[in-house]
Amino acid sequence: MNRAEGAAREISRLDMLARRDQRVNRIHPLVKFLLTVGYIAAVVSFPKYDVFGLLGMMVYPIATFLLGELSVRDAFRRLRVVLPLVCVAGLFNPLLDQNRVRLGDVWISAGVLSMLTLMGKGVFSLLASYLLIATTTAEALCGALSMLRLPEAVITQFLLTFRYITVLLEEVGRMTQAYALRAPRQKGVHRKVWGPFAGQLLLRSMDRANEVYESMLLRGFSGKRFYQRQRTPLCGRDLAYGAFWLALFALFRFFPVLLLVGGIFL
């Protein structure tokens, strides 16, 4: 199995993960979606030197990993391509920001603090998105989006894009395999072939994506009815779960909870 086929299987595995019957999976998708948006908004709004305040936000991913019985190792393995990119964003801060800030009795480089904050924001936001995908199916998310009255075209676009990624990756897998078998001494696809390779890939995956869509149509798929079916009523437990976490996000965002707790013991 080559890397593209592996990635396609990884998406299928993620889909199966979202279909498990864990406590977090059972929470209403709309609540999880809004919580994720709220969490990311809270995380990115932290001041650039407030690294300790930001640490408090770790509680949400930790709790979700535990409640959902998800593997932290798998999460970082799946995010390994994006995580370095997110971390690189803050690498130059120590050079650009030469100020010093005081933390208790210690003076620390402001650039280092802002770098850590930026990295933390990126990692936490990515983890929150991952946790949403790992505990909510694409169809359920579509149902949640339709409850928010988003246009049907936008939701269908989201659903088909999700399906299209797998189709595209499978096609990449087939083509690279066929290429490698006829170019055994080459590593990867030679740059001379990138143009036609990409063109063929686009045409072939469009054909397949079209067939997948036709197959959906022929089995009664109509966006509106499909999304309506995905809608499930919100119950008190879901609302309580959402309200609890939103209150906690607000608490961590506006009060130095960790410093206060630390102050009790010091």
């Binding site: 399906r163 397949r208 997948v212 036709e214 197959s215």
Partner: peptide
């Protein structure tokens, strides 16, 4: 469909 993969798009 001729190509079953076009038809089987759900997870299970």
């Amino acid at each position: 469909f001729q190509d079953s993969d076009s038809q089987l798009f759900c997870a299970s």
